[in-house]
Design a protein around this nucleic acid. Structure first.
Lengths: 207, 207
DNA sequence: ACCTGAACACCGTTCAAGT
DNA sequence: ACCTGAACACCGTTCAAGT
């Protein structure tokens, strides 16, 4: 733990301990406080006590930095989905928990979430890592649905199609919540609960 | 019609026929071809053969221009939703048609759609026109659901909550499609159809 | 190998001045 | 009232030069 906290204030050192990680963390902090449009490469350098151009040793350009931010987000999202699924038990309640966890992630880190889905990164990009992490987050959902299918708890439809649908629902709720587009009479908790219930009704096998 | 096409190439005129409308149209054209990040106020002025600062006579700043673009988008979206609802007949098939029309609008004009939902405009803004148009688009959906409730075709749940749920689903599908996040084995038509069907299952009264 | 400082091209916005 | 040209502050990025 001590060796990691060492990289926190690395001033007056020619060789930066782990500049790439520090740049990424600072970018995340700036995005969180000032939004995506408030992120400037120059300010990152200033805050880290490093030249404005030092960043280019670790990222090709601003787009590559945002790509790394998005990749980091998908990794975190997958972890939280898997945790929710495991903690709730591998049943329909687990599916509910994943939906809630998904929306919670987006609402808790709206700007980070927007970098992942706001069109800032090209999905057809040559960087495979982003695609791998994004696919991994979706796979957590597919795996859960397959497990539920095995126990005859959800329809036997194509699992990937079902997963895309479930993802669409929680993604839609999350985006509307972030954008402040939810009608005043319908708060996040209400619509989340309603969505999860209707999701279950639409997907689960009626006994 | 002739009087409108007159504003198309208004060069060498001190008094511009309808500069505000021309600025908005040019902004839409630039967004469509180059994306939101490709929109620059300077280029708009150049293309219209007008000073770079002429725009500030009609819009407070770039944000106000984007706000107008978003407002325009919500107005078009509502029109297309109402048209779909009316043409398909005021029944469950009409609800399907609205869902398809919604996704079609987003996929056909991805950058315009992103301005409406990409966090570029503050929903808490002092400009009431944007909020009015956004609420109007949602209202088209609420009205349809109320009509369906009257005929006992959908559940008697709170219509606004139901509308927010339906909106979330089509919004989620649309955003994932625009972002290119749909899994390769699931194209837009497939997930749209699946979503509309599951939506109906989740919302309709089971006879 | 990694970092620096100056420089370049570009942008949104302001403002005194024109008609 | 509406528009213009010059100017200001800011940004991403490049590049020869340093250690």
């Amino acid at each position: 733990v001590a060796s990691k906290s060492q990289t926190k204030k690395p001033r007056n050192r020619y060789h930066h301990g782990n500049l790439r990680r520090a740049l990424l963390d600072e970018a995340l902090a700036m995005i969180r406080s000032d939004g995506v449009s408030g992120l400037t490469l120059r300010e990152i350098g200033t805050r880290l006590g490093v030249s404005r151009t030092a960043l280019y040793r670790h990222f090709a350009d601003k787009g590559a930095l945002l790509e790394a931010v998005a990749t980091d987000g998908f990794r975190t999202l997958r972890e939280q989905l898997v945790t929710a699924w495991n903690q709730a038990g591998h049943d329909l309640a687990g599916l509910d928990a994943m939906g809630v966890a998904y929306i919670h992630f987006a609402v808790a880190s709206p700007s980070h979430y927007r970098v992942m889905f706001g069109g800032f990164v090209e999905p057809s990009g040559h960087q495979p890592e982003l695609a791998v992490e994004a696919a991994g987050a979706l796979q957590a959902l597919v795996d859960a649905l397959i497990a539920l299918q095995r126990e005859r708890l959800v329809h036997g439809d194509d699992a990937t199609t079902m997963a895309m649908f479930v993802w669409s629902v929680v993604h839609g709720v999350a985006m509307l919540a972030i954008d402040g587009q939810l009608h005043e009479s319908v708060n996040v908790a209400t619509i989340s609960q309603y969505a999860v219930e209707r999701l279950r009704t639409g997907v689960a096998v009626t006994t």
